[in-house]
Each structure stands twice: as C-alpha cells, then as structure tokens.
Design a protein around this nucleic acid. Structure first.
Lengths: 248, 248
DNA sequence: CGCAGAATTGATACATCTCAAGCTGGGTGG
DNA sequence: CCACCCAGCTTGAGATGTATCAATTCTGCG
C-alpha cells in the first residue's frame, strides 16, 4: 500500500503501552527481538477501512491505540458488528489467507502489524505466542457468546444498558472508579455503530438512550459523554445479575 | 498404563471415530499414549445436564458421539443457546476453574474426558495439543460471530433457514449429497431448543417451519425428518450468498 | 452564516410475542 | 387391545416492541 511516515514514539517493544496484554505478553526479551524484526506500525484515520472481508491478508497484528470494529455485511446491506477491537486486541487469523470480516477504524488508530508468513513460523517455534493467542481467543469466544445472549434475548433497553455497562466497566477498571462510585466515559461509537452492534436501528438506540436518561439511569453531557451515577442500577437495567455476569 | 475397566467399544485412540478431528488430531503415537493415561469415557442420556454454569470443572473433553448444547440463562429464565456441540467438539476451558455455561446432552451422548490438571500440564509440554485447540477455538469464534449476524439481523424465516442450512450442510458433507442434489436429515433439536438457539419463541419457530414447507423450500416426514429438494434455494432463504457464507 | 453529518422525536406499519386452544403420535396401564 | 395421557407441536387472535418513514433540531466547522 502507500508508504506512510512511521509514527514517532514507539518502536521499542519494551516500552509499548500494550506490552503486557497483547499477543506478545508472555514473550521473553529474545523473543521480542525476533518480533521486532517482522513488525511495522501503521496508522489509520477514523472511518478508514483497515481490511475488507474477502481480501487477502498480508499481515496480522495488534491494536496499539484507538478502537476498531469487526463487522459482517449481508448482500442487501444489513450489517452486524461482531466485535469491538480495543488496544491490545489481536487482528487476523493465522493459518487463513483471506479476511472473514470487514475491519474499520472507529477512531484514529495505530496498529502493530506482523508480516503474516514469518509470524506464522514464529508461532510454530515460540510456544509463548501460541499460548497467549489461545488465551486471548478463548476470551474473545466468551465475549462473543455473552453477546449472543444480548442479541438473542434482551430487549432494546437492556441491550443499550448492556453496552453502556460493558464500556463503563472497562473504563472504570482503567481510570479507577471515582470515590462516589460514579462512572464517567465517552462513547466511542456513533448511534449508528451502536445500532449495528446491538442489532437495532439507530432510531431505537436514540429513543432508549433518551429513556434511560429520563429515568435517571444515566446522565448525558453533549451527545457522547455519559455519566453513570449508579453502576449497579445500570447492571440491573442490563438484566445481568449484580455479580458481574461476564467472566470469572 | 494402569488398567481400568472401560466401556466396550473404544478404548484405543487409534480407532477412535473422532481421532482425526478432535483436540488430539495432531498427536503422534507417543502423545496419544500419554493422553490414554488421563482419559476416561462417560455416557449421558438425552436431556441430562453434563455441566452446570458456575460449577467447578474437574475435566475437559471431547464429544465422541451425540449432540450437546451450550446455553446461558438469565435470572428471569430467558435462555440463549450459544453453541451446539457435535462429535469432536471440545468442552471446557483449560485454565479456568468454573464453567461459564450450562452444557446439556441433547441426544444420548458419549464424552471422552481428560482429567483437567494433567491435561493442562500436557498442553504446556505438547505443542500439538495447544496448536489444535487454538485452531478449533478460532473456528468456534468464527461460528459464534456468524451466529451473531443471524441473531442480530435476520428475520425469523431467515433464522430458521440458516439453522436448517447449517445442519443440512454438515449432513451433506458427512453422508455425501445424493445424486439428485437432495439433502435429507433428522433435526436433532426440539422446536423449543431451536427457538433457544435462534432467539425466537417456539411458536414462531413452528410457524416459520410450516411456512417454509408450504412454500416448498423444505418437506417434512413426521416432525423431525427434513428433506431439502434444493439446497441453493434454502441458502437463498437464509440470506447467505450462494458461495457458502460461513468460512473459506 | 450556512451547510452537513449526527441525533432526536413523531406517527404509523409490521414482525414477533403472548396467551390460549387443539392436535398428534407413541407409550402405558387397565 | 383399547383408552388415555402427555410431551411435543401446530394454529389462531390479539397485544406489543421495534422498524420504517419523515420531519426537525442539534453540533461542529469551513
């Protein structure tokens, strides 16, 4: 593809912000060195398509910063988001030559890409990589199954609450919840993207957000900034038991 | 090897019907021998619960014969099937101590169980097992994501057609399609189980099956035996492009 | 200022759910 | 051997949640 200037800042794996959570998390210094030999960084702008379903994949890689979405599209244009890729999430499938989904940058985004062939060879010889990838894939499988319950059985209101709860929980873990128990975050998705994730229309998403706001479950500052006064209340609205639902 | 009494029929991995597709597919003779040391067989009757969500898991294993389902349940009783386990499919998650889903035998079923601790140790030392498990997990992840599209965006009619297409395709691959291109199979699921899989009510399932029958897309012999005169027609009804949709 | 994309809100249509009443086929006990 | 029974299934009628179509309003930005 086009050649781009390399983003200044990270080339050294040791200082990488996702060093301890990405596919390379378990690697030793010497293994990292080998990875450095086959990696390169690439930047994408919000809205830009990273991979087209059916395309030949020449790389696999990790999201370093920003958010991307994994979507499937039917012939008539109906689309379903099947995954949300956050920093440290892995993109691509070793052993498969063509992409199964569209990958789109939702925000500006930086990827750490590995050339596919050498990466696959390293997987054979470096158990640490395969082990970590297995772990990550199992986590994604759990998340996908959790989402199947959301898509198949929850009401529109519960779907919205579930999405907000997931984003909120992640942000709470990151920023540390505030003393008063309030959780605060920016929605990284447009209403339309939320609709595609939840299997709804954007109008229904908008209505349900308004309803949750009217009922005091959430507060809004602008269109995108969400304040959750009571996380437990939100979880209740999501239909999850208060113990956390997802994993354990 | 210790000697143990074993169910008649299979004890020898070499003759196992799922030998080349299960988690042990890539193992060499010596690796199989180690597996034989930590494995045991267990039978379940149709309807029997194999694992309860939240239970401590003392084993992982493979479905040898029969069909099981993976389901999630909300507090108020709504349930969503999140996976259908066919022969050779793997049950359980190495590295996690408690089960995340209910596992129920849909038909009479035989499992090849591995004691969890020793199996996890073998995974560390035997790359062939971890590699195969990664491959299988990636396949399951793809299947789960395919199903997210079904749950989120397809109509009831398309959902039914999708389910029949999946079962039909699998059976066609197994029995070899008949010369005239007809595909024939028994539904391994009740209407209610189908509803739980598709995120519908059993009444809607029943109605849509009747509709597909009236429109000549399928024929029924009794309640469970399905005849598909034209697989391409069924795939069209499912909303998949004719090229196969799922994987490649 | 004014435009364009994003979001909200309203009115109506429609797919699916819900509740309810029968049907069917295979097994059981009298 | 028949009558009954029961789980699984089908069908109907009406209620309801979400989609659809359409009109504004908001927000940021050239």
């Amino acid at each position: 593809m086009l050649l781009k200037e390399k983003p200044a800042g990270f080339h050294d794996c040791e200082e990488c912000p996702i060093r301890h959570r990405a596919v390379c998390a378990r690697c030793e210094a010497d293994e990292l060195e080998m990875l450095e030999g086959i990696k390169y960084y690439r930047s994408y702008e919000a809205g830009q398509r990273i991979i087209w379903s059916g395309d030949r994949m020449e790389f696999v890689g990790s999201v370093v910063s920003g958010i991307a979405s994994l979507t499937q599209t039917m012939e008539d244009g109906r689309t379903q988001m099947v995954g949300l890729l956050l920093p440290s999430d892995f993109v691509g499938r070793p052993g498969r030559s063509t992409a199964a989904y569209d990958v789109v940058a939702t925000t500006d985004l930086v990827m750490c890409c590995f050339r596919k062939k050498p990466f696959e060879q390293m997987m054979e010889t470096t158990p640490h990589i395969a082990q970590r990838l297995l772990q990550m894939t199992l986590d994604e499988l759990d998340a996908a199954r959790e989402w199947m319950l959301v898509l198949g059985r929850k009401t529109a209101r519960e779907k919205i609450a579930s999405l907000l709860a997931i984003i909120g929980r992640r942000d709470a873990a990151l920023h540390m919840a505030r003393a008063d128990g309030m959780v605060t975050f920016d929605l990284p998705l447009t209403r339309e993207a939320m609709a595609d994730y939840l299997g709804l229309t954007l109008e229904t998403v908008s209505r349900q957000i308004s309803a949750l706001k009217k009922d005091g479950v959430i507060q809004l500052e602008g269109k995108r900034h969400v304040i959750v006064p009571d996380m437990d209340r939100l979880m209740e609205e999501a239909g999850d038991d208060s113990d956390g639902g997802l994993l354990n």
